[in-house]
């Protein structure tokens, strides 16, 4: 046996392999590819647009303006004394991260058809990179939020240390739902047509433009099963203070983790046939 500086890796190809054995290690060895895929998405997103990266600022600000003008004037929307634009914007930031990540991830595999059928890489990189490519938008959103807080004369409260936790939770929900839908989309393109409606319904089923206090008590348990309820409430609490939404936050974490695990198991089984059915 001759000696080489480094023993070459051995790849075993078999009819069935468990996702839990290979998947995550493989993801780590391909981290540079993840970087390039995110870099590609960022480069392309605002190519050949007039406003360019300014869209990352304009989108949430315009939405806030629209909701403030339309819904902000309706009496009876309970914001616990917070100015409505601020109330909405604090909800829109995690929501935008979630919904854009969801849409991007659910399209990522079909969009990556040309490379899926030609070269090996962990397929999970596609939805993951699609979500990561919206992280800069999240940071920009947080910066605008800080400006708005100053504008309305509200300080940054100590609860802000919880912000990353709820931002991460938004990403986990987005990754779970997006990865699952992305895998289903490979076989059934119905997903592509369904996602815009899903996002719309989900938006109104989450306490973004209104406060969850308007939900009747007997339906509250159902409402709280939506993991985005905990994300939005928690995020808003971290920014604006008030009563900590402990119970709903814990429920959301539980639901988010379940969704993510189910999505990963499904993905691991489905990815073997991606190249054949895409």
């Amino acid at each position: 046996m001759n000696v080489r500086p480094t023993e070459p890796p051995v790849v075993v190809i078999e009819a069935a392999r468990g996702w839990w054995r290979l998947g995550l290690v493989d993801l780590w060895t391909h981290r540079e590819l993840l970087y390039f895929l995110v870099w590609r998405d960022l480069k392309i997103r605002y190519r050949q647009t007039f406003f360019g990266v300014a869209w990352a600022v304009l989108q949430p600000v315009l939405l806030m303006a629209i909701f403030s003008v339309s819904l902000g004037r309706i009496p009876g929307i309970e914001t616990s004394g917070v100015p409505y634009p601020l109330f909405v914007f604090a909800g829109l930031i995690p929501w935008t991260m979630f919904s854009q990540g969801l849409a991007g991830a659910s399209n990522s595999l079909v969009g990556g058809e040309s490379i899926i059928t030609k070269v090996y890489f962990p397929r999970l990189l596609l939805p993951v990179s699609a979500i990561c490519s919206f992280l800069p938008d999240l940071v920009i959103g947080l910066a605008i939020l800080a400006i708005l807080l100053a504008w309305f004369g509200a300080g940054i409260s100590a609860t802000a240390v919880w912000l990353p936790v709820f931002a991460l939770l938004a990403i986990v929900v987005s990754a779970g739902a997006g990865t699952f839908l992305g895998a289903v989309n490979v076989r059934y393109r119905d997903v592509k047509h369904m996602v815009p409606f899903l996002v719309q319904v989900w938006f109104f089923a989450s306490p973004i433009v209104y406060s969850s206090s308007i939900i009747p008590a007997q339906w509250r348990w159902l409402y709280d099963l939506n993991p985005m309820t905990g994300v939005v409430e928690g995020f808003r609490w971290a920014v604006l203070g008030g009563e900590p939404p402990v119970q709903v936050a814990i429920e959301s974490v539980a639901v988010a983790v379940i969704v993510l695990v189910v999505a990963l198991v499904y993905f691991g089984r489905a990815e073997r046939s991606f190249a054949d059915v895409i």
């Binding site: 790849v11 075993v12 190809i13 009819a15 490379i115 070269v119 073997r272």
Partner: peptide, 27 residues
């Protein structure tokens, strides 16, 4: 062999770093 798709049966071992060129201009 390049792990784009999985076999229905059988097994293969590859000893070494693998590169595949199934198309010009992949990606």
């Amino acid at each position: 062999l390049s792990r784009v798709t999985t076999p229905t049966e059988g097994r293969a071992e590859l000893h070494g770093r693998v590169g595949s060129l199934l198309e010009v201009g992949t990606g």
